[in-house]
């Protein structure tokens, strides 16, 4: 009662900030906090009931104090929930910008996790291996669309490109994973593993971000 579970959520959010991946969604905690808010709201209703709309705080200091505490707790819980969800969506947005396919990665993780059983205990009650809630998956899908739409207005600029000031037009790269054939202005290049190329930075930026290529300095 009174914000203890909300505190746990905030601790989770704080931890999420410094992690590279997204930890599992705390379905149980979110539900518990929401339930707490509803209970507190019911309490407020019960306290106010005998007064039938003519409540005067100065004559009933005890009831007024209880009401205030309840109200503050509800608001605090709301803030905790918002902060928790916002931290996670920020993280997801960051991944969208970084060119990482979040949903695909989730499926991979799910496949990996089936062998590890001690993680299952931490995951929410529905038992699914995904660390995203269904709402979050939907959010990622829609945000990717939104991002694509906004990017589409700046086709010449390539908004998700590198934020490092460009020094050289051409760079040396090594291929870490087979990436197939890419088209450049100087013809097609086939990127096979362990080969090395001298290519235009703009042509391969996305592949570097996705981990197919490594930049050599």
């Amino acid at each position: 009662m009174y914000g203890e579970i909300g505190n746990k959520l905030v601790q989770h959010a704080k931890r999420t900030q410094s992690l590279a991946h997204l930890p599992p969604y705390q379905t149980e905690l979110v539900r518990a906090v929401t339930r707490e808010v509803r209970d507190l709201d019911k309490d407020v209703g019960t306290i106010l009931e005998p007064f039938a709309g003519s409540f005067d705080p100065s004559t009933e200091p005890a009831a007024a104090c209880a009401l205030l505490v309840n109200h503050l707790c509800m608001r605090r819980n709301k803030r905790c929930l918002l902060a928790y969800h916002r931290t996670r969506t920020d993280k997801l947005e960051e991944m969208c910008w970084g060119g990482i396919d979040v949903l695909e990665r989730q499926q991979e993780q799910q496949a990996n996790k089936t062998g590890i059983s001690d993680d299952v205990g931490k995951i929410g009650a529905d038992g699914a291996g995904s660390s995203l809630s269904p709402e979050e998956e939907e959010y990622v899908r829609q945000y990717s669309d939104l991002l694509a739409a906004y990017k589409g207005q700046w086709t010449d600029i390539d908004l998700t490109g590198s934020l490092e000031p460009p020094k050289d037009l051409f760079i040396d790269v090594r291929v870490l994973k087979d990436a197939g054939e890419i088209q450049t202005e100087y013809g097609a290049i086939t990127l096979t593993k362990n080969s090395q190329f001298y290519v235009r930075q703009g042509d391969v930026e996305l592949l570097i971000a996705q981990g197919y290529l490594q930049r050599l300095s």
Binding site: V30, T34, V37, K78, L81, L82, E136, Y139
Partner: peptide
């Protein structure tokens, strides 16, 4: 998007 995400995650069950 954010508002609907919050709403479907928890806010719709709030008073």
């Amino acid at each position: 998007l954010l508002t609907s995400h919050y709403a479907s995650s928890f806010l719709s069950q709030f008073p």
